[in-house]
């Protein structure tokens, strides 16, 4: 993988630009992610603001915070964090996402450090963050405990870990696999392996063992009437998100 967009040729850049446009098209291939993004951002921004005592109505509320976005993709979460003033590192294990995200950030006038790497590699290198965003990744990894341990190592003592994933039950099977992959075709078939889904109790247990103290959990609920997502205190039956603190 090339180190920066500066070293790739024009045809490559054009291809990446097209891919970036695709990532950022709210009605395109990543529509389900765009539909969910406002509630994801509501949760993330409020948790960070609460934990670090920041005022979201002021300018650059996240200034001085170092945030890692694991599985950054095209930068759908990294860009908002940078816009709020944070210093952002976006990491993705898929090499082609990196130049795509870089091109888009540059055009948006944002400075974001996108890297083709993994949480484990960054932890081994001793990187430290105030916040780790761990969104819809844990259900794709082979060893969740080892992965969450790496996330913990990436945090400064008292740092905030925000982790979302999909519950494992009959409803999540219907919604996430039959519904999202087969009926709606929101996601490519085979995106998810239902046996890797994790219940909130299992996730809390894994996080505790990894040295992360769980402090909050909420559900993301899709309303087919308003055709939009909202945050629920009680319904964690399919998509849910958690907050935990590095034990120090």
């Amino acid at each position: 993988m090339q180190a920066s967009t500066g070293t790739v040729d024009a045809a490559e850049v054009a291809k990446f630009e097209a891919m970036a446009a695709e990532w950022w098209d709210p009605t395109g291939k990543f529509k389900p992610l765009h539909m969910m993004n406002p509630v994801r951002l509501d949760y993330i921004t409020r948790q960070i603001a609460g934990e670090f005592d920041r005022d979201l109505t002021g300018p650059a509320p996240f200034a001085g915070l170092r945030i890692l976005d694991i599985g950054c993709g095209g930068g759908l979460l990294s860009e908002p964090m940078a816009r709020l003033g944070a210093t952002v590192v976006g990491a993705d294990a898929a090499p082609r996402n990196i130049p795509v995200a870089r091109i888009h950030a540059e055009k948006s006038g944002l400075t974001i450090d996108y890297r083709h790497t993994t949480a484990e590699a960054m932890a081994a290198a001793g990187e430290q963050f105030d916040v780790v965003l761990n969104m819809e990744v844990v259900e794709h990894v082979s060893d969740p405990l080892a992965y969450l341990t790496a996330c913990r190592q990436l945090l400064r003592p008292g740092g905030l870990h925000l982790c979302s994933t999909i519950n494992r039950n009959a409803k999540s099977y219907l919604m996430a696999i039959i519904g999202a992959e087969h009926v709606m075709r929101w996601l490519p078939k085979g995106t998810h392996d239902w046996t890797k889904f994790i219940t909130p109790e299992e996730l809390f247990d894994l996080m505790s063992r990894a040295g992360l103290d769980p402090v909050d959990r909420k559900g993301y609920v899709f309303n087919p009437v308003s055709w939009s997502w909202s945050i629920s205190d009680r319904d964690l039956s399919v998509n849910y998100v958690t907050a935990s603190i590095q034990r120090g």
Binding site: W24, L41, T45, L56, A82, S108
Partner: peptide, 8 residues
């Protein structure tokens, strides 16, 4: 407040 691009 969410950090979204206001003209998106």
């Amino acid at each position: 407040a969410r950090g979204e691009d206001i003209g998106a």
